[in-house]
Simulated scan of single mutants.
Amino acid sequence: MAHYTLASRESKSDDTLIRLGELTLGGCEKLFIAGPCAVESRRQMLDTARLVKRGGAQILRGGAFKPRTSPYDFQGLAEKGLEYMAEAREATGLRIISEVMAPDAVPLVAQYVDILQIGARNMQNFALLKAAGRSNRPVLLKRGLSATIEEWLQASEYILSEGNQQVIFCERGIRTFESYTRNTLDLSAVSAIKALSHLPVIVDPSHGTGRREMVSPMSLAALASGADGLMLEVHPNPAEALCDGPQSLPPAEYLALMHQLRAMNAFLAKLPERAKAVGE
C-alpha cells in the first residue's frame, strides 16, 4: 500500500470530481484559472476579471497575501485584496482562488474565496495543510520547488486525512540545473499523478517557465498530457505589474490562447472516437 493511502488509486479507482456550483473539475471537464499574480487595486481586478470572463476562463486568480523571495518586494494588499476579488466575483460571476500562507489565516481567506491555494513554498507546511483540510473549501496544492512526486502526494494526504476530499494538484515546475527558464515544467508529473491518484491535476505554465512566449505552447502541451485544467497569469498591462510581469499574458495573447485551448480541447475529446474508427 502506498504511503499516500487516501490519495491513491488503491483506495479509490474512479476519478474524483470537484464541484463548484455549476462547475466541475475532473473527468472530461477542463477548468481554466486566470488572473494576475497579485491583487494590486480594485480597478485592476475588475478589469482583469472582465478580461478573464471574456476569454472563457471560469475562475479568477489573484494573490492577496504574497510570499515573495525578498522581504522588500510587494507583499500584497491582505484582506483588502480579498475584498476586491469578492467584488470582481459579484461583477462577473467568476469563482475566485487565492493563496493562504498561515494556518490562522485559513478561516479569513475561506470567508472570501471558492478555492484555497497552497503555494509551492508551503507544500510541506504541515500545520497549514491540516488547517486547510479542516476547511470546507477545495484546496489547490502546488508542487514544491524541489519536491518529488511521492512527497507531493504525501503532502495531499495531510489535507485528505482531515476530512477534506477536495484536493487539486498543480504542477508549476521544479528547480533543476536549467537557468533559461524560471523552473523546469515537468509535464510527466501529470501522467504520473493520473496513474497514481484519483485526484485532479492542473498545470501552471506561467510559473513553470517564467517566460511569456512559452506559456501558450506549454499550455497546449499540458492539455495534451492529460491535465484537467490550467492556471494562467494574466495582467491588463504586464509592464506595470508589481509581480511576475515577464510571465504574465497581456489581453490579446490571453484571448488568442484561450481560443487555441478550446480548439485543442475539442480535438482531444474526439480522439477516442477517431481511435475506435481506425480500429474498426
Rank of each mutant, 00 (worst) to 15 (best):
Y4P: 01
T5M: 07
G21N: 14
C28D: 13
I33V: 15
G35D: 07
V39Y: 04
E40V: 07
R42F: 10
D47N: 13
R50P: 04
L51N: 04
K53E: 14
Q58S: 13
I59M: 13
G62I: 06
G63R: 06
K66N: 01
Y72I: 04
G76F: 03
A78M: 08
E83S: 12
Y84R: 11
Y84S: 08
T92D: 13
A110K: 10
A110Q: 10
Q111P: 07
Y112M: 07
Q117R: 02
A120F: 04
A120K: 01
M123G: 02
Q124T: 08
L128C: 00
G133R: 04
R134I: 02
R143M: 07
L145W: 01
W152Q: 00
F177P: 03
L199N: 04
P200D: 00
D204C: 05
D204G: 04
H207Q: 06
H207A: 08
R212Y: 00
M218T: 15
A222R: 08
G226N: 11
A227V: 06
A227H: 02
D228E: 12
V234D: 03
H235D: 07
H235R: 11
N237T: 12
A239T: 07
Y254W: 02
H259T: 15
Q260S: 15
A263P: 01
A263K: 15
A266P: 00
E280F: 13
